[in-house]
């Protein structure tokens, strides 16, 4: 075999490695990750008193009415009772932020209110406070179907998210789609691979022994394939979050979820 044929073969392999179908498809039938966990995890998630994520929700509940910042205003000062004011809000996130014209997720919106409307110190992504507030606000949409828009200016973000989803990354050279679109229901070592929906987050993972954001989960999967991790809140993760939310169709919000 000549060196030329060798390099041709290599070239073919490289092309094949990157040329993947980039059509946005939803898994069918749509199944929340909770369907892939055992009965014990389901019981934990559904029991308000046993659900470990409720600790963070309680923190969020307290923060909602706690005045902060120069203007000494709380979230409730503007939005009132969250059970009505925040009802179904999370089903529309991520969305285009009217003030900036760019994509924002629920964490981003909360951070924005905190800085602009409360004039308070910023909340760090993945901080206990932001996890708590986000979980509390998202919980006001618990059980309601996601209703994401990818029209207009959201389209470009959606397409970038989709491209990320289908791109092979890391030393193990796998895309999100290889596991969660093509092989859900199969096992990776001891773990059943779910369809990889974001609907339970922020959620409690027994594996982490704590609460985490969806972006933290992205980092886990990327570190698993030995790919670069980006910081929570990175624009690429927002794109991915939008794609995932679209891909989840009308699955219900499950926050605060529990997973293995």
């Amino acid at each position: 075999m000549s060196l030329r044929r060798l390099s041709l073969g290599l070239f073919a392999a490289l092309v094949a490695g990157t040329a993947v179908a980039q059509t946005a498809v939803r898994p069918a039938p749509l199944k929340s990750g909770i369907e892939f966990t055992g009965a014990e995890v389901r019981a934990l998630q559904n029991d308000e008193f046993a659900n470990p994520a409720m600790l963070w929700v309680l923190r969020g509940t307290a923060l909602w009415t706690q005045p902060a910042g120069k203007d000494n205003r709380s979230c409730a000062s503007c939005h009132g009772d969250a059970t009505t004011g925040m009802k179904s809000v999370a089903t529309h996130y991520p969305q285009i932020d009217k003030s900036s014209g760019s994509l924002i997720n629920l964490e981003g919106r909360i951070q924005q209110c905190r800085e602009r409307r409360q004039n308070a110190s910023p909340l760090k992504y993945e901080s206990e406070e932001l996890l708590g507030l986000t979980a509390f606000v998202r919980m006001q949409s618990r059980g309601m179907p996601l209703a994401i828009s990818i029209d207009g200016p959201a389209r470009a973000y959606f397409e970038r998210g989709r491209d990320f989803y289908y791109k092979r990354v890391g030393q193990m050279n796998l895309a999100c789609a290889h596991c969660h679109q093509d092989n859900w229901g199969k096992k990776l070592g001891p773990e059943i691979i779910s369809q990889g929906h974001g609907n339970p987050y922020p959620g409690y993972r027994l594996e982490w022994q704590t609460m985490g954001s969806l972006h933290r989960r992205f980092r886990s999967c990327l570190s698993g394939v030995r790919a670069e991790m980006l910081p929570q809140g990175a624009p690429e993760y927002l794109d991915l979050e939008l794609y995932l939310a679209w891909r989840s169709g009308n699955l219900p919000v499950e926050t605060p979820g529990v997973r293995r």
């Binding site: 290599l10 073919a12 392999a13 490289l14 094949a16 490695g17 990157t18 791109k167 092979r168 990354v169 890391g170 030393q171 193990m172 050279n173 796998l174 290889h178 093509d182 092989n183 990327l222 570190s223 030995r226 790919a227 670069e228 991790m229």
Partner: peptide
Amino acid sequence: AQSIMPAYYRIEGLNRVAAA
């Protein structure tokens, strides 16, 4: 070409590999 099995002895054609 579509294999999901990682190439265990190849470094070309990979994206976003963690620095380590």
